[in-house]
Amino acid sequence: MDDLAVSTRGLRKTYRTRRGKRVVAVRGLDLDVPAGGVHGFLGPNGSGKTTSIRMLLGLIRADAGTMTMFGRPVPERLPEVVSRVGAIVESPKFFPAFSGRKNLELLAEAIGAPRSRVGEVLAETSLGERGKDKYRAYSLGMKQRLAIAATLLKEPDLLIFDEPTNGLDPAGIREIRETMRSLGAQGRTVLVSSHILAEVEQVADTVSIIGHGRLLASGTVAEVIGGAGKGTVKVAIDNHEAAIPVLTEAGWTVRLDGGYLYVDGAAHPADVTRRLAERGMYVAELAPVRADLESVFLELTAGEGLGTDEIKPGPRGGDR
């Protein structure tokens, strides 16, 4: 099972809030993250992404379910695999009064990495000179880069980034995206969570979409998109009025939009052409509609509402 970097089955977590209310944050999550490449872990705010990641890392205890990383059951055998896993959960967190370099030196020493590695990872994340400044004085982008530098101290096979671009400016977002892409290209596995789809669509090889703490869809980006947009065909034809009843008779739904007919429900685009040709109508243009991740996402999560039932994510969302 070493071809899966991460796998969970029936993972559950219920929080008890201060007022004694119970919030089911993750309800039976089955997640598979293949080894190698970038895997997008998508879901709206409050859908349980951070909670799942914390459970994987042993920061919080699952109520039920099993988890493996590189085939090892975790958290039981987490110590065996932790040196292969670098993670940033929510925002980067370091000692504010120490310099970036000092923070990394302490971590490097704790895991027995050579001290020279600190200089290397600072250079790799272009922090170089700024390493000696206090962490407190860093911009958000620099903090994020320092956090990535920290994960690289281990030279990990799996990197877990939880909403890494939150709050970054466009340049920062692009930087992170490129870092993820290059880490994936090096044969490492990057598990990146996000509620912003556009961000992940460009770099992810595979994605999992969750809502309500449950898996809604997973596969390659093409599969997930194809699956959702299946059967929608865009047709240009001279005589709409005549064509529409022909198509509806076949049991398909038809919508006219911007001079095009959108036909839903056909098993194959060829069926549409054949049907029309039988009645002596010929299409001028025909294309299967490729849904983008955004619409897939909305479609999948439409019935799910946002996040959990119990707590409506406020302005701060589920990220606390």
């Binding site: 958290p75 110590p79 896993v85 993670a87 967190k93 504010p96 971590l107 895991i111």
Partner: peptide
């Protein structure tokens, strides 16, 4: 370590 949140980060290095 609690107020800066760095304890959680530390535990991802030594669980």
């Amino acid at each position: 370590e609690y107020s800066s949140g760095s304890l959680g980060n530390w535990l991802t290095f030594e669980p």
